[in-house]
């Protein structure tokens, strides 16, 4: 049943009648059954946490900290398993060629060496 809805009386809210009773059963999409009750979308303003976590100090850590943390926090990398130098090189170069991270050749080599030292694997795969 289409409903024409105006904006809610309050600024920053958009209202619609929504049925919270859920149509069960195997039918994938069902029109909402009555009774309907109101749901109002409310404007939102939030703050997302940032991370000040740095890479462990060591040869190349300055290159990693300087180049990598603009786009993503360190946790993602530190949560990675041991990977081969080839796998780390592929990751670093994906950041540069696909995701356009402006990393110098010199720093890219230092980053690959750092990550291989921190989380290297000698197994042939991947």
């Amino acid at each position: 049943m289409p409903m024409v809805l105006g904006k809610g009386a309050a600024v920053g809210a958009v209202a619609a009648n929504l049925a919270l009773a859920f149509a069960g059963g195997s039918e994938a999409v069902a029109q909402a059954p009555s009774p309907a009750i109101g749901l109002t979308l409310k404007s939102i303003s939030v703050e997302l946490p940032s991370s000040d976590r740095m890479f462990p100090a060591g040869p190349g850590s300055e290159a990693v900290n300087n180049n990598c943390l603009a786009c993503h926090s360190a946790g993602m990398v530190l949560n990675q398993p041991a990977l081969t130098k080839a796998a780390w090189s592929a990751e670093v170069h994906k950041m540069i060629t696909v995701y356009k991270a402006p990393v110098s050749d010199e720093d890219a080599a230092a980053i690959v060496a750092y990550l291989t030292r921190l989380k290297g694997s000698s197994s042939p795969h991947p």
Binding site: P2, V4, G6, A15, V29, Q31, L41, A87
Partner: peptide, 30 residues
């Protein structure tokens, strides 16, 4: 408001990351 004025539908559905459980892959992957 325009969107919400269209006929309303609902369904239950699983939202699952393509890489859910990636950490269990062996050999491990990035």
């Amino acid at each position: 408001s325009d969107v919400m004025s269209l006929p309303r539908v609902q369904l239950a559905a699983v939202n699952q990351c393509s890489g859910n459980s990636r950490g269990f892959f062996q050999p491990r992957v990035a």
